[in-house]
Design a protein around this nucleic acid. Structure first.
Length: 483
RNA sequence: GGCGCUAUCGUCUAGGGGUUAGGACGGAAGAUUCUCAAUCUUCAAACCCGGGUUCGAUUCCCGGUAGCGCUACCA
């Protein structure tokens, strides 16, 4: 039975790297009929926050992926201690009574490799028991086989055969002196108990995996399969951090900016994985069908965002934005319209589903992010157009007089033309011809009058949706501006 | 410092002992349309360096360099 897990520690918002790890696990489970387990690795009580849990769940809910089972590591401490004790009873771990030091010993000084504490490792069982019984605090450390030339090995589905001399592995802690399990112990104990068959996680754990193999073996459990994922990094190659890179590393930023969850999912999948057949836009189902561990590559992938966040949407990886536009265009108009509705309303636009459905085809190819609809379609929803430069009304190779002539004629024609695409097309083209104007010279003043700007959707469809009343009022306004 | 992982256009990647080294984004140019988009066409753009193996290496091996990870009683 194939079982995978996503095990975030709730110490921050949902990170794009974590999201991708979740996605790859999910894809693997769905592809192979496996079970997806979500486990909150919350043993670091100090750093866990409720806000973080909310961010993780909120992000995952948005991605709409789902999982089959859910656990909280902090509720499973008894299991962790039981396994730690079993390892200790087998003589594969020892008590270390050295007072805890707050992680300051590294980086300063000659920084020698710390492997183990000989005094504590060699302490007799009697002495150890006596000091423990006396209430002296201790950390429990794994007794890594030393001086025997042993090797620890495992096969990684992505990185291949991995071997390390046991002598190079430090005697890592299993339990802290306060009795709480460390990440390594808790993670492995839970993986054993939850019968996780495949561990798919970030490559930052590749070198930790030797320790985990040691724990699995010491616990007498089967060692699961491993697949490590290349890391997602910033354009300068450094690892993504909120501290340094800000909201761009948070999944909710993409949601709030108007990414479609399936587009974001698609984008993340293409970082460090390839279907190997030149496809780029892929649906959820296509991703499931194409996913395999063989498609994962080994080099870190850059999330190509702009460091000093330029304009709001210019900061995103251009490929993510493009993919989003692709997904938007691939959506049936009805679906896109329905999904645009809440975006517009959140943006303060009062719009009916009917109106939205009429507007959607006009902006569909003109928006990259969902929120772009707010600016792309603004003129459909306001009573009064915001002020614009009357010079915009003047057509190519024309002057104010030409603009006035075109608008005056348009006012007459539009007063009696049916407001549908074809009649509008015929009437306005005929009017242009009468006036001796090129189509563009006729249309531009009308477009600017109706939309308040030069760049807008095609004229006839736009007028049709806008309606006669608003159109004529706006032409009226434009003529006033011109004089 | 120690141990390990990685290295193809600016970015994501395909490929693999002999290829015009392929695709995508982004960039440039053009076509098209009533503007803007969308679409289509074209162009520029890469095998980290040095040794070896080989008739032949970008591909295999070794070394270097660089980047990254681990080296906590964080996860």
């Amino acid at each position: 039975m194939l079982r995978v897990r996503f095990a975030p520690s709730p110490t921050g918002f949902l990170h794009v790297g974590s999201a991708r790890t979740f996605i790859f696990n999910w894809l693997y489970a769905r592809r192979n009929g496996g079970t997806m387990v979500l486990r909150l690795d919350d043993t670091d009580v100090e750093r866990n926050t409720e806000a973080s849990v909310n961010s993780i769940f909120g992000g995952l809910r948005w991605l709409d992926l789902g999982w089959d089972e859910e656990y909280k590591q902090s509720e499973r401490l008894a299991l962790h201690r039981q396994i730690a004790d079993a390892i200790f009873q087998k003589g594969l771990a020892y008590r270390d009574f050295t007072p805890a030091h707050a992680g300051d010993s590294e980086r300063s000084g000659p920084s020698q490799t710390w492997l183990f504490n000989p005094g504590m490792r060699e302490l007799s069982r009697e002495e150890s028991d006596r000091r423990a019984a006396a209430g002296e605090p201790f950390a429990l450390r794994f007794r890594v086989p030393r001086g025997l030339g042993q090797q620890v090995r495992f096969t990684d589905a992505v990185y291949g055969e991995q071997v390390k001399a046991a002598d190079d592995i430090e005697d890592f802690a299993l339990l802290r002196s306060d009795g709480m399990p460390t990440y390594h112990l808790a993670s492995c104990a839970d993986d054993v108990d939850l019968k996780i068959s495949h561990i798919i996680r970030g490559q930052d754990h590749l070198s930790n995996t030797y320790k985990h193999v040691l724990i699995f073996e010491a616990a007498g459990a089967a060692v699961p399969h491993f697949a490590h994922l290349p890391l997602l990094v910033a354009p300068d190659g450094s690892k993504l951090s909120k501290r340094k890179h800000g909201p761009i590393v948070s999944v909710t930023t993409y949601r709030d900016a108007g990414f479609l969850p399936e587009a974001f999912l698609n984008f993340l999948c293409l970082l460090g994985w390839s279907p190997k057949d030149d496809r780029d836009r892929m649906s959820r189902q296509e991703l499931i069908d194409a996913f395999s561990l063989e498609g994962i590559n080994r080099a870190n992938a850059v999330v190509n965002f702009k460091e000093p966040a330029a304009t709001p949407e210019e900061m995103f990886d251009p490929k993510a934005v493009w993919l989003n536009a692709e997904h938007i265009r691939a959506l049936p108009v009805e679906d896109l319209s329905a999904r645009l509705l809440p975006v517009m309303r959140e943006g303060g636009v009062n719009v009916t589903p009917e109106k939205m459905l009429a507007v959607t085809p006009l902006i569909r190819e003109r928006i990259k992010l969902m929120r772009d609809a707010l600016t792309a379609a603004d003129f459909f929803f306001v009573d009064q157009l915001p002020p614009y430069d009357p010079a915009e009304l003047i057509p190519q190779k024309g002057d104010a007089a030409m603009a006035a002539k075109a608008l005056t004629r348009a006012r007459e024609v539009l007063a009696k033309t049916e407001f549908r695409h074809d009649p509008l097309d015929h009437a306005l083209r005929a009017a242009a011809q009468e006036l001796g104007l090129k189509a563009g010279q006729m249309f531009q003043p009308i477009r600017v009058a109706a939309c308040g700007r030069k760049n807008a959707p095609p004229l006839f469809e736009t007028l049709e949706v806008l309606g006669r009343e608003k159109t004529l009022a706006r032409i009226e306004g434009a003529l006033r501006n011109l004089s």
